[in-house]
């Protein structure tokens, strides 16, 4: 197992799910105190699904065709759990957590490349 690959998957999953959740009026309101315009809803959904797809591609690339999808699904569940907990207890903290996830996703490839993947 490659810690960098897992961190990358967790970061991308969190960003992707976060974008999808902000595309829903209820959560957009709770986090940003406004309702999203239709154009923004579309952009957030496109970004969310793309990030989740990117996460799958990265997992397959770094962990191979059999472990990749398993790790991808696992990281989606883990990231989703954190996201839902944040949404119901500290919705205002979500933007900061998304920034953190973005930083982790950017830093992770360096970590992933420094050690050979299986």
């Amino acid at each position: 197992m490659n810690a960098g690959a897992l961190l990358l998957n967790l970061g991308l999953s969190f960003l992707g799910l976060g974008a999808l959740c902000l595309s829903l009026a209820r959560h957009h309101g709770a986090v940003l105190r406004s309702s999203p315009r239709p154009a923004r809803v579309l952009a957030l959904r496109a970004a969310g699904w793309s990030l989740i797809g990117l996460s799958l591609a990265a997992a397959i690339r770094l962990e191979g065709g059999s472990f990749g999808p398993v790790q991808w699904l696992g990281s989606l569940v883990g990231a989703g759990l954190v996201l839902i907990a944040a949404l119901s207890y500290r919705p205002r903290a979500l933007p900061w957590m998304l920034l953190l996830a973005a930083a982790a996703s950017l830093a992770a490839p360096a970590l992933a490349m420094s050690r050979p993947a299986f």
Partner: peptide, 17 residues
């Protein structure tokens, strides 16, 4: 059995869920 420490935590979390 294939899961390393981190992936095992995710499996464990899924089991808890």
């Amino acid at each position: 059995h294939f899961a390393g420490a981190a992936l095992r935590v995710l499996f464990f979390l899924c089991g808890l869920m």
